[in-house]
């Protein structure tokens, strides 16, 4: 019996968010939408980290709370990445004037 509110629930939420984010990245054409998807992925991973920490840390590392520290890391990383990505997107947008990802294929072989 899967208990409500246990580890599984959080993992499911995290997985759901991850898939949603993945879907955004892969299926959306607008770059901004892709970035939003990436944010979702980041947050999904953060949920996973914290959930694991909360439910398992008692037995494992006790006082370390490494999962929650990783959560903070993720937030910072997300922010940094968002900044850089948005900067890149802005530069690209100024060049090609459209947010369509299909037009940004200059690195083809």
């Amino acid at each position: 019996m899967i208990e409500l509110g246990g580890l599984h629930s959080y993992l499911v939420v995290g997985a759901f968010l991850f898939c949603a984010g993945m879907a955004c990245v892969l299926l959306k054409r607008n770059v901004i939408h892709m970035l939003m998807g990436i944010e979702l992925i980041f947050n999904a991973s953060a949920i996973n980290f914290i959930a694991f920490d909360h439910f398992n840390s008692m037995e494992l590392s006790g006082q370390l709370m490494s999962g929650q520290v990783m959560g903070l890391f993720v937030i910072v990383l997300a922010a940094a990445e968002a900044a850089v990505a948005l900067a890149l997107v802005l530069a690209m947008f100024q060049m090609i004037k459209t947010p369509n990802i299909d037009d940004m294929s200059k690195l083809k072989g």
Partner: peptide, 17 residues
């Protein structure tokens, strides 16, 4: 072989996934 490198990020990501 050259066709694999088409510059579309989403394709790369899809393959990755």
């Amino acid at each position: 072989v050259q066709r694999i490198q088409n510059g579309h990020i989403q394709m790369y990501l899809a393959v990755l996934v």
